[in-house]
Design a binder for these strands. Structure first.
Length: 559
DNA sequence: CTGACTTGCGCC
DNA sequence: AAAGGGCGCAAGTCAG
């Protein structure tokens, strides 16, 4: 920013901090090293134009949810950013970081900063906590923390990936998942009859009630009440202590089939019925809010419309626009592959070079059958040791000592009350609860020792899973970030939604909405991004991440 | 009545 | 002897 207002010609270093100044005004300050240059002030309405000019800039801002939606609404996409809120959250819990480097007067306020939802993203809400924070100071603290960290390379990758994730999240909410309300409505109508007036049951659902009542001999039964239902089942002589579908399926009784049918339809109606359509689908798009880093392991959370569980039943309503298609991709067996990579277990990595990792474990003679392989690995990663899953563990440990050793050690560390971390350095939360506070002295306040021991083992299962789930989330973030940039480059000259763009992401699956003629190139990009994510996390270590990719008109047709 | 908690079930 | 990770959401339940 040598000549006043920054321009593209200024070239690198090209990291610019955006700060809210007086109402309606923004300050841009070029950053180099730890220092911020002199502020350049511009009116809010000029910000999109200003940002659009500097395509290669890394924008540093307090929180992506407070800046990016408005830019997207103005038709501006940014290439990269540093999200100080997300970065701080990572650094604050990473065991790689010396926490004293992050101390400061407004540390507590930074720690408390929460994302804003789409409806409240007004850029200059004066009562916003963010208004009182100093992003330049926070940025230099974070740079210092990073510079002092023993694993600064990994951490820097994690911060960049997390920030890219924040961009993707905002873009997906902006674009929305194409959703055909008419198809959804037809689907509901076929299953349970036409939409009833508010507060009434649809015809097909209603018709099941007398059937259930008759079979159970409970003429007044309201099947929506778990309490009433449980009593009715018990009065009918059925040995049950809950009303879960899985429990009911074990029973042989004439009341069970209509009841299961009722529960199934009633669930669909409540979770993804007409009310869901009214609330969450506008102008042919489903727009949930994604919360990057919303889960302690690094997975995303979501809010609005239950984006984490869009049932397969209603996916036929996700239909690409005319002339467009979906490229749907998911990673087969992400977590065991990640475990092979992060533990450097060459034997498991060899299995991970096959499209079906579990089958490869059988073929190498490690376990007798595919289901043994799967159950055993799930048990190793989740901490299940019951039955089949537990019996496989010694066998797996012999064959894959590094991989199984890594999760076992994570479990032991958790049980000792220690913090564990992912490959890139995301730290697990410190343990809470009676067992953790009392781990060094015997219980003296009446909490039975068995209960403390149970809690301790439960925490060990959490830390065991944390390292794998969390590193899996890091792989997925890198995949997403790289794919996002590849898609942009494929698209020609238009805005985000004129080019191939991400419209859905869930843990290990993405949906890209693309002009049909680019579907082949998008498919290639999805594969290239997966390979790149593997290299970023595991360098040259030979572990593959094969994808299942479909090019479809409707999400329901994938796989 | 409201709000907190529980139950059940969908997704990975 | 028993022992499975992470979520969000709606509806029912129950205490205050």
């Amino acid at each position: 920013m040598t000549t006043g207002r920054p321009t593209p010609e200024d070239g690198v270093p090209d990291r610019v901090l955006l700060v809210r100044a007086a109402p309606g005004r923004v300050e841009a300050r070029e950053l180099s090293g730890g220092a911020a240059g002199p502020p350049v002030r511009l009116p809010e309405e000029e910000l999109p134009g200003f940002v659009r000019q500097r395509e290669r800039t890394r924008w540093v801002w307090d929180d992506t949810t407070r800046w990016y939606p408005a830019l997207l609404a103005a038709g501006v996409r940014v290439e990269r950013c540093s999200d100080l809120r997300l970065s701080r959250a990572l650094l604050r819990h990473s065991p790689f970081v010396d926490q004293t480097t992050l101390a400061g007067d407004d540390a507590a306020a930074w720690d408390a900063l929460a994302p804003v939802a789409a409806e409240e993203h007004a850029l200059f809400a004066l009562d916003d906590l963010a208004e009182r924070l100093d992003p330049a100071a926070e940025h230099s603290r974070q740079q210092a923390a990073l510079a002092a960290a023993p694993e600064r390379g990994r951490l820097a990758l994690l911060l960049a990936a997390e920030s890219s994730g924040a961009l993707v999240a905002a873009e997906m909410t902006h674009a929305g998942l194409p959703w055909r309300a008419d198809v959804h409505d037809r689907l509901l109508t076929e299953l349970m009859g036409p939409r009833p007036p508010r507060g009434q049951r649809p015809a097909q659902l209603d018709a099941l009630v007398p059937e259930i009542r008759a079979a159970l001999g409970a003429p007044q039964l309201n099947p929506d009440s778990p309490v009433e239902l449980l009593r009715a089942l018990q009065n009918a002589g059925l040995p049950v202590s809950d009303t879960r579908s899985w429990t009911l399926e074990q029973l042989d009784h004439p009341g069970v089939p209509p009841l299961l049918e009722y529960k199934k339809l009633s669930r669909l109606l409540a979770a993804n019925g007409w009310a869901w359509l009214d609330s969450w689908v506008r102008d042919g798009r489903f727009r949930p809010t994604y919360l990057p880093g919303g889960v302690v392991t690094g997975r995303w959370a979501s809010s609005g419309g239950g984006a984490l569980s869009v049932p397969t039943q209603i996916r036929p309503a996700a239909v690409a626009d005319a002339g467009w298609q979906f490229v749907v991709a998911d990673v087969a067996q992400l977590e065991p592959r990640v475990l092979a990579g992060m533990s450097g277990d060459t034997a498991m990595a060899e299995a991970a070079r096959a499209a079906d990792l579990y089958q490869a474990m059988v073929d190498s003679g490690a376990v007798p059958s595919r289901s043994d392989a799967k159950l055993g690995m799930l048990g190793a990663m989740y901490g299940g040791t019951r039955g089949e899953s537990g019996r496989m563990l010694p066998r797996l440990a012999r064959r894959y000592p590094q991989a199984i050793g890594l999760v076992e050690e994570a479990a032991r560390a958790g049980e000792r009350g220690e913090v564990v971390h992912t490959l890139l350095g995301r730290g697990s939360p410190p343990p809470t609860g009676a067992w953790a506070e009392r781990s060094l002295e015997p219980a003296d306040d009446g909490v039975p020792p068995e209960e403390l021991a149970r809690d301790r083992r439960a925490w060990g299962r959490f830390t065991r899973n944390f390292v794998v789930q969390g590193t899996g989330a890091e792989w997925a973030l890198c995949w997403l970030a790289d794919l996002r940039n590849r898609l942009w480059r494929l698209g020609g000259a238009g805005e985000l939604t004129d080019r191939p763009h991400l419209v859905f992401f869930l843990h290990d699956e993405v949906v890209v909405h693309t002009p049909a003629h680019l579907a082949g190139e998008v498919t290639a990009a999805v594969h290239q991004a997966a390979a790149q994510a593997g290299r970023l996390l595991f360098g040259g270590f030979p572990v593959d991440f094969p994808l299942d990719v479909s090019v479809v008109d409707s999400w329901a047709d994938a796989h």
